[in-house]
Design a protein around this nucleic acid. Structure first.
Lengths: 304, 304
DNA sequence: CTCCGTGCGTGAATAAAATTCATCGAATTA
DNA sequence: TAATTCGATGAATTTTATTCACGCACGGAG
């Protein structure tokens, strides 16, 4: 009845990675012959070829590509399940895999995770930042168990809890004309170089909530990966950036940068923790959210 | 290295379903002894018990429950993968699994699917309506390949295309005082019995876009599963309902019901088709969306 | 062009595993 | 309390996976 097994998926994935049966076999601690037999049997039973044998190289056929996608989706879940079971065996509670969709939140997260690890010595924490299908997809696809994101999604199956409010502000260097200003209006950025994290513009609040509504684009847009470099660039007059006020204030002395309110009323933001509804009752998950919620005060900037 | 196999998940799921090893064994075409050995080996290798043997009954332990959840998630994907491979073998293109989050769209869908099946004789179509984690979750979890929904979600990994616009209207019976009225205002429904599909109020447009903003609740709220019964109830003065105008007009003669605009401007709605971005280039998927888009005219009611 | 290295497929042999058979003890029920 | 049902266990057996040995085809080097 059942013909497709875990080993088949493992072979298909490994052959793709290594480029040849022989190399894949070595990786899987098997002989080339074993793989050949295994695949031959599978191809025979379902009546479909997995690869096109073009001379020496193996090109996945359509069914092969389909299986490859399935393998890349399913095998990590097997691996994680086994890992989790081993943790159960050792008396550990599990691994909380946290996904981040909010670059500057990393520093905030560290402040939550530190006491959490003390309170829950038997829980491991793992933080991930790259997801093929976005944070929501990673949550649904069991790549992660919790998501830190500024944009929640109240849908059946997921639950989001706001954990802190903050104000998004413009950061400028000491020589910048806006340094010390009460606030900045969109058109004042029309000739600026805007430094942001490397994500699409429609995921950046300074566009969606500030520039785009006013129909303004900055003169130049520079993507930078790390917050430190970003602040360094701003401090040395290479452009301006938009970051949470608390982050700017924490780094004000170190980098010599100043916050400026975005617009008269400021741009208010919230960070949410999301998890699968099915996990909502797990004690160590609840505890994390609770801890994150109570630390909210420390991270809150002055009210707008 | 790899210890957790498909068979283990199958056993765990089947034991849960059947309540006993013996019954599960019969279901899986194995002997009770085989299952016992298989599980004993697994428990031995990972060092964890799957069930608590309380006298005769088997209660899943915490790891057991975890594996059960994994089984319920993973096994259907194996089954579907095999099914899909068999279809490849037969020269078929695959099965388009369509999920519905929009009760009255069923009739519309039939009109799209009929010509589609003719154009793509090698593609099977399967329509599903129940999802544990909502339509979006089903899409991410590979339970379905396409989602028909009035509320889209533009997120990385998913793509939504609007396929038709319609007007949501109130439906009333021939004896109803509102019959023939130009439009209805929220307070006029305060003493009515409102018939809807059995979904939460925050998913019903008549609440979110009409009643709730005005702070009105109907006197009574009756959930009904099927459109026909709903129209029958309305026609016989048992209440009013909210449905797409095109649906009402199609059934006006058959059931003797009339549409009434909701508010002065009417309530405008759109239906979207959603799919995983990874599938966006598959020809028979594109074709379905194209077909659905071109049929848009027929379903469009008079403009508001 | 030919030789040689390398990679894949195949059949027989072997090793490993899964499954069954036979049996027992414990728990449930009549 | 006897009869019955269910799960565990060890040995026997069957099935399956893997290896070994070998042949063939492709492609690069000489």
């Amino acid at each position: 009845m059942a013909i497709l097994e875990r080993i088949h998926l493992a072979i298909i994935r490994e052959v793709e990675r290594q480029g040849s049966l022989t190399a894949a076999a070595a990786q899987l601690n098997l002989t080339q012959s074993a793989l050949s037999h295994a695949i031959a049997k599978l191809e025979d039973q379902i009546g479909v070829k997995i690869w096109r044998r073009e001379g020496r190289s193996l090109q996945p056929t359509q069914p092969g590509a389909f299986l490859l996608a399935a393998a890349n989706r399913l095998l990590p879940q097997f691996a994680h399940a086994e890992e989790r079971l081993r943790q159960f065996a050792k008396g550990e509670r599990g691994t909380l895999r946290i996904g981040m969709e909010c670059h500057p939140c990393y520093q905030w997260l560290l402040k939550i995770v530190a006491p959490y690890l003390d309170n829950w010595p038997k829980v491991e924490v793992d933080v991930r930042q790259k997801f093929q299908f976005g944070g929501i997809g990673a949550l649904f696809g069991y790549e992660i168990d919790m998501l830190v994101t500024p944009d929640p999604l109240h849908k059946p199956g997921l639950r989001f809890t706001p954990v802190f409010d903050y104000e998004q502000v413009l950061v400028v260097g000491p020589e910048h004309p806006l340094c010390g200003a009460d606030f900045v209006l969109p058109h004042e950025l029309a000739e600026e170089t805007l430094i942001t994290y490397p994500v699409p513009a429609d995921r950046l609040d300074i566009y969606t909530q500030f520039l785009t509504p006013a129909g303004i684009s900055p003169r130049q847009h520079k993507p930078i990966e790390t917050t430190d470099i970003m602040l360094l660039m701003v401090a040395h007059g290479r452009g301006v950036a938009a970051l949470p006020r608390w982050l700017v204030e924490e780094n004000a002395a170190k980098f010599n940068v100043s916050p400026v309110r975005l617009g008269r009323d400021g741009v208010a933001k919230q960070i949410f923790l999301g998890l699968r509804e099915a996990d909502a009752d797990i004690d160590y998950m609840r505890a994390f959210i609770e801890l994150a919620s109570t630390r909210r005060v420390e991270a809150t900037p002055r009210p707008t």
